[in-house]
């Protein structure tokens, strides 16, 4: 097996596994940049995966055909944004501990999604969906030698949307007035308030954006990777996305890079058995690599990562910070 074949095996698989992580991690960037910790990404992603699977099945029944998963994405974005409102209300308006509220959100999502699946389908999981996201070659780009087959062939549209979206989010957060306000609210909410920025409103928008993104991430996972939803569909992908966001230093492009790297680690643990050099490395090292790297990154061994200054603190008008 030559190098090219190995790369053709690993890289598309990495991009494929990374897509849901990218969406969710980008959502996390919005929320945490505004100063709201979002441990609830896992639960939001879970609701997204549930919605994605359920509404793709419904879409198929309603005759949407190949558009079914795309229809489910829209529903998942809405459901994710609405579900994240719970976290926003508890942690922004009622000043609940943001981590606690996020944990509660995860519990609630896990219970609610499986409860609803049992109610709707009378079974522990949704039917397997027929219309998955298509693989396709990107026109022109896939004809480029070497790069073409590696990055632009037999890939999922959703992966490209994820990568493109990372640049859009970067532009929004760093180059628009909205982004500046979002960041200022997360760094020094009182100063932002003095400048006439509505801190509470900004944080609500940011948390709902994180819900929308995580919902989309979950739906992409359900329609491209798992193909159905059950209690074991989302087991830690949301936390992995959280890790990617931190490893990427709360920066959209950093989160993109980290998510791609984690996707690579995941794809290696699956495809590793077919690759000569990697066959001898026990699977467990590849499985724990993303988590170990995140810890090292946080400890400052892989470049220092600083969280937004006001993260985790509820904002009360007239109370200093």
């Amino acid at each position: 097996m030559d190098l090219m074949q190995i790369l053709e095996l690993i890289i598309p698989a990495a991009i494929f596994s990374a897509a849901p992580l990218i969406f969710t991690a980008l959502g996390g960037v919005f929320s945490e940049r505004s100063g709201v910790v979002n441990i609830g990404l896992e639960g939001l992603m879970l609701m997204g995966a549930f919605t994605g699977a359920v509404f793709t099945v419904f879409g198929e029944q309603w005759g949407f055909g190949a558009a079914s998963p795309w229809f489910s994405f829209i529903v998942a974005i809405i459901v994710g944004a609405l579900f994240s409102l719970l976290h926003a209300v508890a942690s922004i308006s009622f000043r609940a501990d943001q981590v606690v509220s996020g944990v509660a959100l995860n519990f609630l999502a896990a219970g609610l999604a499986v409860f609803l699946v049992k109610k709707i389908f009378d079974a522990g999981q949704t039917p397997i969906i027929a219309e998955r996201i298509d693989k396709s070659n990107v026109p022109f780009l896939s004809d480029i030698p070497i790069i073409g087959p590696l990055f632009f062939s037999h890939a999922y549209y959703t992966s490209y949307i994820a990568i493109a979206l990372a640049f859009v989010v970067w532009y929004v957060i760093y180059k628009t007035p909205f982004g500046l306000r979002l960041r200022s609210v997360g760094e020094h909410p009182m100063a932002a308030d003095t400048m006439g920025i509505n801190v509470i409103k900004m944080r609500y928008i940011a948390v709902m954006l994180s819900g929308a993104f995580a919902g989309l991430g979950g739906a992409v996972y359900a329609t491209s990777i798992s193909g159905s939803f059950s209690h074991s569909t989302i087991t830690g992908q949301g936390f992995m996305a959280l890790a990617a966001m931190i490893f990427g230093k709360w920066h959209p492009l950093g989160a993109l890079g980290a998510a791609l790297f984690f996707g690579l680690a995941q794809s290696l643990s699956i495809t590793g058995q077919q690759i000569p050099l990697l066959k001898d490395i026990p699977e467990v090292y590849l499985l724990i690599a993303p988590y170990v790297l995140t810890i090292l990154a946080l400890a400052g061994l892989v470049g220092r990562a600083d969280a937004p200054k006001a993260i985790g603190q509820p904002y009360e008008k007239g109370k200093g910070r």
Binding site: L108, G111, V114, K119
Partner: peptide, 11 residues
Amino acid sequence: PTQLIEIVIAL
């Protein structure tokens, strides 16, 4: 479904 109790605990 037993998940109702998970929902109650989360709430």
